[in-house]
Each structure stands twice: as structure tokens, then as C-alpha cells.
């Protein structure tokens, strides 16, 4: 088989798979389901290959199977540790031994939580709070007020500031209700703009898919 033949087969396979996916626009059918299951199978295999080749093998080569004479037995033992903890995850399918499988989860959750906390504070809250407080620096007074007010009202919208009346009904004080109303407006505007961006993105992907497949068909018809 030549490379040209391989590309031709790949082109036809791509066209058939695209049509199988778009057949869903008519109705849910077996062609669409086959295409989705092909995607699941190949994605699983590619993810597994990437995990082995890009993460596990370099790690094992650097620790357990290191040729460096200076590599201590402690480093080699450290190299086995995540593999051992990962293998324990297999025990989670057993009702009796599931507790041992939790050890791997504990490592991931503990370290992941530490990273998430530092990331949330240093990477999100502080820079955005600083930006919000500097709203008036780069914008006109009106825009600055909208930026700062919008940010604060959005935050108020997600707070539970209601009080319970004697009959158990939760009520907001009038000024909180007003701030929440304004906050809801900002959230709705933001979600609308994000939704429109999603429409534009999917439209450009759709047009590029159609362009690609039409080009292939025209190439075949022309030559």
C-alpha cells in the first residue's frame, strides 16, 4: 500500500464518519451510534497510550529503571509508590477491599485540594479582586462604576442573604433584593454573550468540516 492510497482511504473514512455523525440531525439512528462508539473506543485507546508513553514510561525510566549509578534505593521505591497506589484503585470494585483503594484517592484528593486552594486564591480571587478594585483606572467613570457594581451585584446574587419570616417564608430586604435583581441581569447578559460565542464557535467548526469534506469530494470528482 502506498502513502497516497492510505490518504485516500483516510479521506473516504473521514467523509463516511462525518455523514454518520450528521445523520443524527434526521433522527437518533444506528449509524450515529456506531460513530460515537468508534470515538469512545479510539479515544480510550489514545488516552491509555498517552498515559503510558508520556507519563508512566518516563517516570519509571527516571526512577525504578534508572541506569544512573547515583540513583538511591529510596528514589526507586518512590518510583513504585504511585504505581502501587494506582493498582490499589482496582480494589475499589470489591466491596470488602474497597477501603484499601481509598488510599490512592486520598493522595489525589489531598494534594489536589492543596493545589486547588493555592490556585484559587493566587490565580483567581486575588488578581480578579485587584482588577475589580482598579476598575476606574482604565475606563471612564461610568464604565468603571458598571464594572465594579456589576461584579459586586453578581457576587451578591449568589449569596444566601434571606431571612425567615415567622411563617417560615424566606424574604430578602428591599436593598438586597435590588442588588440581586441587578446581579441577575449581569449574570444573564454574561451567559447570553457566552452562549452567542458558543454559537459562533460551533458555526465556524461546522463550516470548516463542510469545507474540508466538500474539498475532498471535489478533488475526487476532478481527478
Amino acid at each position: 500500500m502506498t502513502v497516497e492510497n492510505l490518504d485516500l482511504i483516510a479521506g473516504w473514512a473521514g467523509l463516511v464518519l462525518t455523514l454518520m455523525v450528521f445523520s443524527y440531525l434526521l433522527a437518533d439512528n444506528f449509524l450515529y451510534r456506531i460513530a460515537v462508539h468508534v470515538l469512545i473506543g479510539t479515544a480510550a485507546a489514545y488516552v491509555a497510550i498517552a498515559a503510558v508513553e508520556d507519563v508512566l514510561m518516563p517516570w519509571l525510566r527516571a526512577t525504578v529503571f534508572s541506569n544512573d549509578a547515583d540513583t538511591s534505593s529510596g528514589v526507586r521505591a518512590l518510583g513504585v509508590l504511585p504505581i502501587f497506589l494506582g493498582a490499589l484503585l482496582l480494589l475499589k470494585s470489591s466491596s470488602r477491599l474497597a477501603r484499601l483503594g481509598n488510599l490512592g484517592t486520598v493522595f489525589m484528593i489531598g494534594i489536589g485540594t492543596g493545589v486547588a486552594l493555592v490556585g484559587a486564591v493566587i490565580g483567581t480571587i486575588l488578581p480578579l479582586a485587584r482588577d475589580a478594585s482598579n476598575s476606574f483606572d482604565h475606563e471612564s467613570a461610568l464604565n468603571g462604576a458598571i464594572l465594579l457594581g456589576g461584579t459586586l451585584c453578581t457576587l451578591v446574587y449568589f449569596q444566601y442573604l434571606s431571612r425567615r419570616r415567622s411563617d417560615g417564608e424566606p424574604v430578602n430586604r428591599p436593598h438586597i433584593r435590588t442588588l440581586r435583581f441587578v446581579g441577575q441581569g449581569f449574570v444573564t447578559l454574561t451567559l447570553g454573550a457566552l452562549y452567542a460565542s458558543a454559537i459562533l464557535t460551533s458555526l465556524s467548526i461546522f463550516s470548516s468540516v463542510i469545507h474540508e469534506q466538500l474539498r475532498f469530494i471535489l478533488n475526487q470528482l476532478g481527478g
Binding site: 483567581t124 480578579l128 475589580a132 456589576g150 459586586l152 453578581t154 449568589f158 454574561t190 454573550a193 457566552l194
Partner: peptide, 16 residues
């Protein structure tokens, strides 16, 4: 302006 303000509020909320 408004979308940036709303997105900032949402992101700070997610961070909190």
C-alpha cells in the same frame, strides 16, 4: 464592560 463585570463576579464566586 457588563459581560466583563459579570464574568469577573462569576469567576470570583467560583474561586470562593
Amino acid at each position: 464592560v457588563p459581560v466583563s463585570a459579570g464574568a469577573r463576579g462569576l469567576l470570583i464566586g467560583i474561586g470562593l
